[in-house]
């Protein structure tokens, strides 16, 4: 163990961690939003909407995140959309998480017993109202844990952004290793940083779950 390197690396890695937190916060925000919108859309009565969402989810689940990151970073410029590596990273992570969260939301909504939907129809509620006022609120508690899982996967996946040279936690560590060649110490430190970050998220989720009402 090279303690001198470790202690001098900690602030450098903290800069990377901060970038990871920023990117992940944005991706969590956009990805969750996208996932909820797609999830609500996936139970729409309009078949073209359902099919389009199904196709999207299929693509996201059927291809590796690394490839999706490359696609966003290298393929979007071809159609005239130029994003720097930072925003390309945020976008790729958001699109990926959105697809998975869509499925979680859809499953949560479908798990509410059909009788309540019939009762809501019988008092004249429209399908969109039933979704918003009856089904969605009741599915929240059940989908919180699986969504947290997905967000943890997102944070871990953000390490892959190092391949398009986003200066986040993993990339920051790799830079130190390239100079000092102390892979064991640095990767251990990186692991610790991720662990703390993810534990904080998991703790937050448990707290929210306790706050949500049961019925």
């Amino acid at each position: 163990m090279d303690w001198a390197i470790i202690s001098s690396s900690m602030p450098l890695l903290a800069v990377g961690l901060l970038a990871t937190i920023k990117i992940c916060s944005l991706a969590i925000l956009f990805g969750t939003l996208l996932g909820f919108v797609l999830g609500l859309g996936s139970v729409s009565q309009y078949r073209p909407i359902r099919w389009a969402i199904l196709g999207y989810v299929d693509f996201i689940r059927g291809t590796p995140l690394l490839i999706q990151i490359f696609l966003v970073y290298f393929a979007l410029p071809v159609i005239g959309i130029n994003l720097n590596e930072y925003w390309a990273g945020v976008l790729a992570l958001s699109l990926n998480a959105g697809g998975f969260i869509c499925e979680i939301v859809r499953g949560g909504i479908n798990s509410i017993e059909k009788g309540q939907t019939e009762a809501a129809r019988s008092i004249g509620m429209r399908p969109s109202q039933i979704l918003v006022y009856i089904l969605f609120p009741q599915s929240l508690r059940a989908i919180l844990a699986p969504i947290t899982n997905e967000l943890i996967t997102l944070i871990k996946g953000s390490a892959l952004l190092s391949v398009i040279s986003v200066y986040e936690l993993t990339r920051a560590g790799q830079a130190i290793i390239a100079v000092h060649f102390v892979p064991f110490e640095i990767f251990l430190l990186i692991a610790l940083y991720y662990y703390v970050l993810i534990t904080c998220l998991a703790w937050l989720s448990r707290y929210a779950e306790r706050k949500l009402p049961t019925w």
């Binding site: 017993e113 009788g115 309540q116 019939e118 009762a119 809501a120 019988s122 009856i134 609120p137 009741q138 009402p213 019925w215």
Partner: peptide
């Protein structure tokens, strides 16, 4: 309805 179907929340 037979099974009431109240909105549980």
């Amino acid at each position: 309805f037979q099974r009431f179907n109240l909105f549980a929340h």
